[in-house]
Design a protein around this nucleic acid. Structure first.
Lengths: 184, 184
DNA sequence: CCCTGCATGTAATCCGTTACATGATTGG
DNA sequence: CCAATCATGTAACGGATTACATGCAGGG
């Protein structure tokens, strides 16, 4: 149920409409907790029903501006301080690695090479993003930078692992076929 | 839809029952793609309906032994070679970091310290697991080791990041309150 | 006047988790 | 004979994705 806390967190910096929040999500939280429009509006309704947020004002085109209530702020603090984060446990990419026995070693190496490449591109993308953030902006920028650094380190690690794994597969290949000789 | 491919992958090393597969899941795939018993039996039924697997034999206590069909093997290969892995994009732990503005800097540091600790424990756990795997066992062991190495590098990176982030928050604290002086 | 952007909602479907439910076999 | 293990299934619920559906307001 982290979407609700993400919304409470965003609203805790100031009132916003569903539309505003959707943009905030896409700008800042997309890399750690994506959400779709329909999910977002649904959750806002439920948050309002639960009294964690309220409609501050209604504007043009049915625009509703929401603000966090004290109950909502308390819930956010509770989640931040007392609820243990759930570690990620599903890696489509690694699952395939278990089944490398079903494809040729060349195909396995090609797969790992692609992963290496994607990780490198992700690292570049994040490094660039890092440049565009003003050094001392709002709270989101300051703390978002910590998350961004995580992404950078993560994609670098990913890249290095893929390089290491390619060599492992090649070594395994040589053990299995000691007479064959393939070019790099 | 990776559960289905995980099942096809496991079955591609030899026939097994739902019960067998459940144990295989918990032993080898739990860290990259967990599955519950009820999910597994449901998916086996759907795979059989779709003709990707067949019931080889029925044993005692209603035991059904499944085997992959050629269609199933083709589907597995297709998934391995042509379907791009979906990158993980939801990090409960990092989402909280964005909202550090809502808690005190000491609380933020405590949070990061816990994460550092958990990462260290995970690294130890995986290092130990690495020792228990026979050097040249079956395909799963050989390639599973690649995934395990990923986990090791990942938890080390996580740990180092948390240490770095703690210092960042402290530095930010000192910028905000230049006169205060806290013990480490 | 029309297109773009603002703005909100609903419905269908899938995947995953938790809990419930049941029964057969085997070893001590 | 009893407990542990083998073995399979169903039901309820929640969260996420995709697609559908609608309509207003402002600028060119």
């Amino acid at each position: 149920m982290s979407l609700r806390h993400a919304l409470l967190g965003l609203l805790s910096e100031g009132p916003a409409s569903g539309y505003d929040l959707l943009k905030l999500f896409d700008e800042s939280l997309a890399n750690v907790w994506p959400a779709t429009q329909s999910q977002l509006y649904g959750e806002l309704g439920r948050l309002a029903d639960a009294g964690l947020i309220v409609v501050l004002s209604e504007g043009a085109r049915g625009r509703k501006e929401y603000a966090v209530t004290d109950t909502g702020r308390a819930e956010l603090r509770h989640w931040l301080l007392e609820v243990k984060p759930v570690p990620v446990r599903r890696y489509d990419m690694l699952l395939r690695v278990f089944f490398f026995g079903q494809i040729s070693e060349d195909d396995a190496i090609a797969y790992l090479g692609e992963q290496r490449q994607e990780a490198a591109e992700e690292a570049d993308r994040l490094a660039e993003l890092n440049e565009t953030i003003a050094p001392y902006a709002d709270n989101f920028a300051v703390y978002g930078r910590l998350a961004l650094e995580w992404g950078l380190r993560s994609s670098r690690m990913y890249q290095e692992w893929a390089e290491w794994a390619i060599n492992e597969v090649k070594a395994h290949d040589r053990t299995a076929n000691p007479d064959s000789c393939k070019p790099d």
